[in-house]
Design a protein around this nucleic acid. Sequence first.
RNA 1: CGGGAUGUAGCUCAGUUUGGUAGAGCGUUCGGUUCGGGACCGAAAGGCCGCAGGUUCAAAUCCUGUCAUCCCGACCA
Length: 569
Amino acid sequence: MKVSEMLIPTLRETPAEAEIASHKLLLRAGFIRKTAAGIYTYLPLGMRVLKKIMNIIREEMDRQGAQEMLMPIMQPAELWHESGRWHVYGPELMRFKDRHNRDFCLGPTHEEIITALVRNEIKSYKQLPQLLYHIGNKYRDERRPRFGLMRGREFIMKDLYSFDRDEEGLDKSYQKMYEAYTNVFKRCGLTFRPVEADSGAIGGSTTHEFMVLADSGEATILFCDSCNYAANVEKVSVPAAGADPAGEKLEIKEVKTPGAHTVEQVSEFLGVEPHQIIKTLIYKTDKEVVAALVRGDREINEVKLYNALDCLRLDLADAKTVEEVSGAPVGFAGPVNLKDIRIIADPEVAQMVNAVTGANKADTHYINVNPGRDFKINIVEDIRMVTAGEKCPNCEGRLKEAKGIEVGQIFKLGTKYSKALKATFLDEDGKEKPIVMGCYGIGVGRTMAASVEQNHDEDGIIWPVSIAPYHVIVVPISTKDEQQVRIAEDIYKQLLDKGIEAVLDDRKERPGVKFKDADLIGYPVRVVIGKNAVENNTVEIYKRSTKETVNVSIEEVINTVQQLLFPQV
RNA sequence: CGGGAUGUAGCUCAGUUUGGUAGAGCGUUCGGUUCGGGACCGAAAGGCCGCAGGUUCAAAUCCUGUCAUCCCGACCA
């Protein structure tokens, strides 16, 4: 297509709203425009990239025997009541009513829809297994949409659901998807890493997240420097080190600590190390108020805490609640003589000797506190955040930290939804059983943004060939020079004939403008036709990723471009 | 949802402290000169100063409310 006839509204300056590279560049290069917070319109170039990513996904899903379908965005509340998630999901679920006052939601995911479908259509083990997917818009009323395409309220997602007779079948489906995902992200030219993850509110057991490594990523992953262990920090669990050989348990004593309510202040005031302090955090769940204890030098891992408490909601308690249960201002709560709430402690805390804790009294702490003797722990469970530098749970290596963008996640769901929605089948033995399910998502728009995060420089985007909106831009230097124009058009047509996706920059702009735009948009290859083409039969071929230029004769252009784009051919 | 900030031309921003009726650069249109890395000269179009109230002879500017957007945190298949 001719650039003069295309809608590619590039911007010289970065819109003030954008913060990270992908957001800035996708806006500047004319791929997306914001419609509302967290809601974007994909312009023609953006749509082309999306289609490329979606087609790669389709090919890899289909290769594993999956079948594409299309499910509704608008979903009736009754299905969500059946699964129980109408209440569980909370305000993130976009809800609305139709004219008859019936409740609906905009689907954030499609377990309910597909499980309801499958329960009606699949009756026998003979119809299993099935891999069904679709690509469509999803809605989540994020508290805080941000970073452009990274965290939107409306986003495009591929979600696939597997249906098997048993766990063994599920393992196979899961393995297929693991492979498919690896292929998808490889083909998209991304540097990524599958990591173990927490299964979160969706339920289920085994799960991996596919993380694109990028500093702007919102997720923190820990990986081992000597084995292949890698996991989301939320999931990482290392055994508590052995107890200090610390000796005798001393007598508990109350000390004044005026104004010291953070671990740092207390440790400074009393001259003790943070790891000798027990940090007491009061949490509120939908059922109860609990005290969570971790060592003073550790942070709480709320995902672990949430899982350990078996609740639907978990929030740090407000100051009022803290004062009610502890009888002291925030900062002086401690497990000793705490009002009758449950106490959950990290294993590290359980083995502490002569620790320091809040005394549930303003400006007061206890020293020489010993768990078991001075207070009772109801639950001992790993609830702390593991940090870089700690020992790998699988080997003797050390953990390192990296930031990642979660572009895909695969789950073994088991029978949670099939039981809730009564999706059963008759097995060979004549018994009715719930279908064993898995679900597998890829954020399509997020994959596009992640690619830009990983592939850009100060001049703009550097698309991998596989997902570039076009392969080549042909640029005649002077649109007044008829010979240049003729040569450019000729090369452009030849490229199209070879199946190479080319555009012709026929705009009456100065060369600098065209070059800047081409770099910004990120065409992998640029062919420049200038005086040399007319006088010496030579054109210039520029590779965006390396900024290298080669001069070749007009006859060699097509071949050279093909080699640059598809080196294996 | 807590904390912070910002809404003035298509984009980036000045003007708000000290009220006096709207500005710059870029972009757009027209004419001309240019033409290998975001040219230059000249002319022009384009704004209910987020919205609604209030104070005032007079409000982009002061006050109140409201909406939107962004950042940090919390949260998040």
